[in-house]
Design a protein around this nucleic acid. Structure first.
Lengths: 225, 225, 225, 225
DNA sequence: AATGAATGAGGCTTCATTCAT
DNA sequence: GATGAATGAAGCCTCATTCAT
């Protein structure tokens, strides 16, 4: 018997199985894309049955949305945590950039899912994808505006600039994902940082000094998710 | 007999029908994406039959590849033409940027196809997509290297920078594509130009002067293809 | 999950449906041949859906192979059972012949499938067909060799002779299958028996005596499969 | 201008093209079977177009029928010629057997077409196939009846025996066709001759003497058709 | 006579979803 | 809660046949 809980509250067992499915879906989606992933594959990877998935999710779309959401949440939380430990506005922007690059560097699957599959999942997810991009660009935008407000950099079109930053980052990641024999993604951080900081008018001395947080903070390239 | 190894030049009639099909495919692919487009749809849009398409192309993939190729060719040619009319290295880079933005601005479908569908078409097209991105980034790279060689801007990591530029541009376009009620895409040119030029160390005076070629050269937002 | 590698015994329900499909396939294949039979027909005859068949078999070919295999197995078992009840070497050969003729006589569909469709199913099944013929010829060969060893008949080229016997039998059956208004197939047994026995040098007295097992053992021409 | 000929009479040019098509059809049918042969293949092999074939033949079936008919005619004529040069009834039967075996031995394609494809071409050709088999069995039957009439062999069921002979021959040929690495088909003649002659009661001395016509008359294994 | 092009019915297979147990 | 089984709507592709030129 399950403990005294409302019937609508998912039981421990159920929470676990749900997560199993999401994990499996995350991996298959990021490997084969949305359309190319069959419910059968997810079921097999989750050690359950197709019917089992349909108990927890109403449609395949719902599974995908949930995977995207939770993945984006995790990444956003990670970035926000990293940013929170910095106070200098420019350092905060650096931290955001650095974190994303480091995270993707160690988690190709996450990068693939968020920035390749999201786009390729079909017109049904257009709004979702736009929101996803807007979310990360929005984070960047916040840091840029802080920097402007603090006088660290001159005023700028924050909306467009954050899009450009995100796009630049996105492309570097995507090219790394598509490469046959990719180098370490994070090798690109110093140069990318320089370009982006320069693009918003950070003084050359500051750029030349490098990112003080960028000592051995290299990715370890092995975390499972 | 298949037309793929024509003993004689393809007849006028055939050339026309082939183009009809490519046109139709271009539109349906850019509206629904690769997987979501059925051969039947293309056939209907091309005023022909499914079998008719298969007379001209061996598979659906082949149609898509051809559409991508010809679209990319057209765009690349347009950019190169625009660039050729400038001599100053920075002006050449500006011309490239401006042309792409203007073109996409008037041809959402082209943008959609090259920068959204290409990515989302599935793993089969990975290499193709990578090549497509590399192609345009490569063009940018050439202009940047010219600028460096001429001393107009300081040395830089041309590979990464061209990726970043392309990515920034790509994202701005993509966001515009995904927006519900988009502004004019080309409204973004001045700000984007400033960011990018700044990112490679173009002097502020040059940036402030604006792009001299950017007078009424706005897109007209109506060309059929 | 596919049922091809069942972790547990296939359930009763499934066994039943699988057999339903095989039964339906047996009938449609033997009536229309492999290429001319559509999966839809099999599905309809099995009171299930096309998809239902694909749950149990990976391809149409696999269905055909399975039908052939099980049909051949059943026939071979029947022959072996009949032969086992005889001890005299010549009587054993007679039993084999008699059994095949009697079986086919009552089951045109079986005959059609094994000796007409198997050949006509296309190049993909060449090896399968060769093996099928070799299997039955091989059985005959065994009985002939026993007969030689026991001294009942003079030495002979067992390989060729078994082929010839099988071919003779096959043709008689085939002509009966192709006839518009066929007589009883088993009416031919006495004469065929005489020819074949004579061809391997069985003494005329033995031949003239007839097959003692051939009293009312006539087929009844109505068994469902 | 064509010479003064009735309009219905095929012109020289036409006769040639028609034959080209039949030749091509013969080869493709015998290699891939009826259903597996596409009109395109025949057209390509005949160096003409699909439309060209439809000028000379109304349907694919018609082409097949014509190929079968002409091939069978050619073989039958060959056999009859060989038989005509013998007077002894048993020698005539031997000649028929020998000729077929030798012909097929050198022309796998003919054998394949007549005795494999004919069966496998589908239900539409049932009657045709039956007639084909009956035709050759009928020839054998004639020789057997002559032999009986002349007292060379005892009375027999000529219909059944001719079927059996034909079937035996057919199977030996078929097995040779299906074999991966076949020996020479005609190596089997002496043994097959012995079996068949014995089966109709030819005296052992006659059998043991061998076929006097079977000196170097081996096939040469190379004729194109 | 001949051809290239087009047609459209039909076939095999996939897969999201449903459902009885 | 979970599963195996079933469903049926598409989808891609093939190919005999037709037809304008």
């Amino acid at each position: 018997m399950s403990p005294r809980r409302p019937a609508t509250e998912p039981s421990e067992k159920s929470r676990t199985r749900r997560e199993q499915i999401l994990d499996a879906a995350f991996h298959t989606f990021s490997q084969h894309g949305f359309r190319e992933t069959a419910m059968d594959e997810i079921a097999a990877a989750a050690n359950t049955s197709k019917g089992g998935i349909y108990f927890h999710f109403p449609t395949k779309e719902a599974v995908f949305r949930e995977v995207m959401r939770s993945t984006a949440d995790r990444l956003a939380a990670k970035v926000e945590r990293a940013v929170a430990s910095e106070t200098d506005p420019i350092a905060r922007a650096e931290a955001a950039l650095r974190t994303v690059l480091l995270t993707f560097s160690g988690h190709r699957a996450t990068a693939r899912l968020l920035f390749v599959d999201a786009v390729g999942a079909g017109r049904v997810f257009l709004a979702e994808t736009a929101a996803l991009h807007a979310r990360f660009a929005g984070m960047i935008r916040t840091y840029l505006e802080e920097a402007v407000d603090s006088g660290a950099i001159p005023p700028l079109d924050a909306e467009l600039t954050s899009q450009a930053w995100f796009g630049a980052l996105n492309e570097v990641v995507a090219r790394w994902l598509l490469a046959e024999e990719p180098d370490r993604l994070d090798d690109n951080y110093p140069a990318l940082r320089a370009i982006l900081l320069r693009s918003v008018g950070v003084p050359e001395e500051r750029i030349a000094a490098g990112d003080p947080a960028w000592h051995g903070a290299r990715s370890d390239d092995r975390a499972p998710r």
